[in-house]
C-alpha cells in the first residue's frame, strides 16, 4: 500500500502548522512592509507632485519678476540715456562757450599782436626808410656836394657865438683841429676852410682833414673836447621823431574803440574786422 494513513494525517497537520507559521513569519510581515513601501512611494509621488507644482509656481513668479526687472532696467536705461544726452548737451554747451571765450581771447590777443606788429612795422619801416634816405644821401655825396656842405659850414661858423669861438680857440692852442667829412674835399675848399678856421681862432693852428664814411652826410669840426658840426642827421632825426609821433597817435586812435567790445560771455560777438 503506497498510502500510509498515519503519514497522511501527520502531513496534513504539518501542512496546517506550516500555513500558520508562514503566515506568521513570512506573508504578514512581507506584505505589511510592501504595503508600507507602496504607501511611502505614493506619498513621495504626491509630495513630488506638490513640490513640482510649487516649483512651477515659483518659476512663474520668478519669470514674472524677471520680466518686471527687465522692464525696470529698460526704463532706467532709457532714463540714463536721456540724462546722459542732456548732460552731453550741457557739456557741449560749456565746451562751446569755453572755446568761444578762448577764441575771443585769442582773437583779441591776435588783434593786439597785429596792432603791435603793425605799429612796430610802421616804426621800423619808417626808421629803415630814413636810414635808406640817409645812406642814399651819403652815397650821393660827392666833392661838389661836400664843398657845398663845407660852404654851409663856413657860413654857419660866422654866425657862431663868441663863447663857442673862445672855447674852440683854447682847445686849438692845446692841439690840432680835426675836420671830418663824409668824402674827401678838394684842396681849394681845404684851404678855404683852413683860412676860415685860422681867422676864427686868430691862430695858425694845424688843421687835419679826415674822411669818415660812417658818419652822416655833413662836416664836423673838433678841437680837443670842443666840437661843432653840421649834417643832415639832425634833419633826419627830427623827421623820424615826427613820423613816430604820428604813428603813436594813429595807434591810440585805433585801440580806443576796441575797448568797448569787451563782453566775453557774449557768444554772438562779431568777428573783429581788420581796421586797416
Amino acid at each position: 500500500m503506497l498510502i500510509d494513513w498515519f503519514t497522511v494525517a501527520a502531513q496534513i497537520v504539518n501542512f496546517l502548522i506550516l500555513v500558520y507559521l508562514l503566515k506568521r513569519f513570512l506573508y504578514q510581515p512581507i506584505v505589511r512592509h510592501m504595503n508600507e513601501r507602496e504607501e511611502k512611494i505614493a506619498n513621495r509621488l504626491q509630495q513630488a507632485a506638490a513640490k513640482r507644482a510649487e516649483a512651477q509656481r515659483q518659476i512663474d513668479e520668478f519669470l514674472h519678476k524677471q520680466e518686471e526687472l527687465e522692464q525696470q532696467s529698460v526704463e532706467k536705461l532709457e532714463k540714463a540715456e536721456e540724462e546722459a544726452q542732456k548732460r552731453l548737451q550741457e557739456l557741449l554747451e560749456q565746451a562751446r562757450r569755453h572755446v568761444e571765450n578762448k577764441r575771443h581771447g585769442w582773437l583779441q590777443s591776435l588783434d593786439k599782436e597785429k596792432d603791435e606788429f603793425a605799429h612796430d612795422l610802421k616804426k621800423h619801416s619808417s626808421q629803415k626808410i630814413l636810414r635808406c634816405v640817409q645812406r642814399a644821401l651819403q652815397d650821393l655825396a660827392d666833392e661838389p656836394l661836400n664843398n657845398r656842405l663845407a660852404e654851409v659850414l663856413l657860413a654857419r661858423m660866422k654866425k657862431l657865438d663868441h663863447d663857442l669861438r673862445d672855447r674852440l680857440s683854447r682847445a686849438a692852442e692845446a692841439g690840432e683841429i680835426i675836420v671830418r667829412t663824409t668824402c674827401k674835399l678838394d684842396d681849394a675848399m681845404k684851404s678855404k676852410i683852413t683860412t676860415a678856421l685860422h681867422e676864427f681862432c686868430n691862430k695858425d693852428a694845424e688843421v687835419d682833414y679826415q674822411v669818415d664814411n660812417g658818419q652822416p652826410l655833413g662836416v664836423e669840426v673838433s678841437a680837443g673836447s670842443v666840437k661843432f658840426s653840421w649834417s643832415i642827421a639832425g634833419y633826419l632825426e627830427e623827421l623820424e621823431e615826427q613820423v613816430l609821433t604820428l604813428i603813436e597817435e594813429k595807434s591810440r586812435e585805433a585801440s580806443e574803440p576796441s575797448g568797448e567790445q569787451a563782453d566775453p560771455d557774449d557768444n554772438k560777438a562779431p568777428m573783429r574786422t581788420d581796421k586797416e
Binding site: T7, I17, L26, I30, K40
Partner: peptide, 28 residues
C-alpha cells in the same frame, strides 16, 4: 518515517529562513 522527518526539515528551513529575514525587514 523519512517523509515526516524530511517535511519537518523543510518546515524548519522555510520558517527559519523566513523568520531570519523578516526579523530585519525594512520598508525603506
Amino acid at each position: 518515517n523519512a517523509t515526516i522527518a524530511m517535511t519537518w526539515l523543510n518546515m524548519v528551513l522555510l520558517v527559519g529562513i523566513s523568520a531570519l529575514v523578516t526579523l530585519r525587514l525594512t520598508s525603506g
